[in-house]
Amino acid sequence: MTGFGGLSGSDLMLAEVGVIVALTALFAWLAGLVVRGLMRRENPQLAFAAQRLAIAVVVAVGAVLAIQELGVGPAALLLVIGLLAFAAILAVRVPLEKEGARFFAGIYSPFKVGDTIRVAGHAGRVIEINAMTTILLSEDDHRMIAFPNSTFLGQPVENLTPHAWKEVVVPITLAGSVDLAEFENAMLKSLSKLRLRLDPRFPPIFTVRSRSAQGSDVVLTVMVRRPEDREPVLAEVNLRVSEELARGRAAPPKPSAPSTTRPRDLS
């Protein structure tokens, strides 16, 4: 049996699925662009996550439409997807909550490792921020106090570190294809234009938290001159980081490794 334009029913169905896939890809790309544009002044990591989420939602809707086109009932499909999502959320609820708390704390929390803070009646030096907890060392150096990261979203936190208010910390994830030295160089040049708003004693500094072939986790720290500059400086730094990331600076080829690497002599 042939249908429209001489195509069989199954051919037509596949063509329609193809169109849905193409449109989904187009809308996903557009959604990514729109979200990135809207979040230009937000933290680059957060903007990236939101961009990925927007793309994922569009892709999910497209997938549902495409599968429906293949003859699977939408109600049954949605039920299966819903049950899978519910099970997944139940399984990872606690880690997800903690990871979410850590993610947002990493971007928005007003302290970092090394700072002295007071929270929930305890004061101490932050010695670790991991996926689940933030660990404080008591002021007498004798006790470790662990707080679930979610604590910091629901409790007032006091940072007792001198000049802590000056610090604007921006975590950045660089893909392995980005040349860290070039990126840092471009950012330092860019940020020197904000010098009037920044403490002259503390030029911006990058700290590499981890580095592998896949990429680098770095932290950019700038110190503002006045408390009221924190928010606008943060937005401006986020914008400049996002723009620089969008430019993309390719890493140069690595020099060849020495050929005489030998096993260690542990004698």
């Binding site: 030295a181 840092e184 330092l188 020197s192 990058f206 020099p255």
Partner: peptide, 19 residues
């Protein structure tokens, strides 16, 4: 340390550290 020249000082040191 706020000059463009100083960013090259940082660049050289970063390149060295990466190596």
């Amino acid at each position: 340390f706020w000059t463009d020249d100083a960013t090259e000082y940082t660049f050289y040191n970063r390149t060295t550290a990466m190596r």
